[in-house]
Design a protein around this nucleic acid. Structure first.
Length: 134
DNA sequence: GCCAACGTTGGC
DNA sequence: GCCAACGTTGGC
């Protein structure tokens, strides 16, 4: 059981879009490190959805419902997974909050902002959940 | 819109 | 295989 952060630009695909679609194919990843992470995802793994550029905040939680398969948007060797929304965070957790937070300031989202799929610890996940309820 | 950080590409 | 040039991402 692993936790992840999935980053998306909300004007391209937002958490609201995910809620509306119910199931989304998480495709378009074109980064080897991110691909590696995608392929490590297991059924039932949990992902924080983070909005980059616009908002710059964690907005919701999703679950992996289909393991990595061929990205349908390309013939090249890239992977996609399917996710469903679990819950919308009551209060989004901003990047600024995470940077200031003792626990979260070292997560890869903060340290390596370009990586679109990255693992986080259960502890980090719980911390984000806690912050979203304050 | 700018720039820093990072990844990728291509010439040697 | 190295490294400079270039492209992309994302925060500010």
């Amino acid at each position: 059981m692993q936790y992840w952060i999935l980053k998306t630009e909300p004007d391209v695909f937002s958490f609201e879009d995910l809620i509306n679609k119910k199931t989304a194919c998480w495709d378009g990843v074109r980064n080897y490190q991110a691909r590696k992470n995608l392929r490590l995802m297991e059924l039932g793994d949990i992902a924080i959805i983070y909005h980059s550029n616009i908002g710059k905040e964690a907005v919701g939680i999703a679950k992996v419902v289909k393991k990595a398969y061929q990205d349908p948007t390309t013939k090249q060797d890239w992977s996609a997974v399917d996710v469903v929304p679990i819950e919308k965070l009551k209060k989004p957790v901003s990047l600024e909050q995470m940077k200031k937070d003792k626990i979260l300031k070292n997560i890869s989202l903060v340290r390596q902002s370009r990586l679109s799929v990255s693992p986080i610890s259960k502890n980090d996940f719980e911390r984000i959940k806690t912050l979203s309820k304050i």
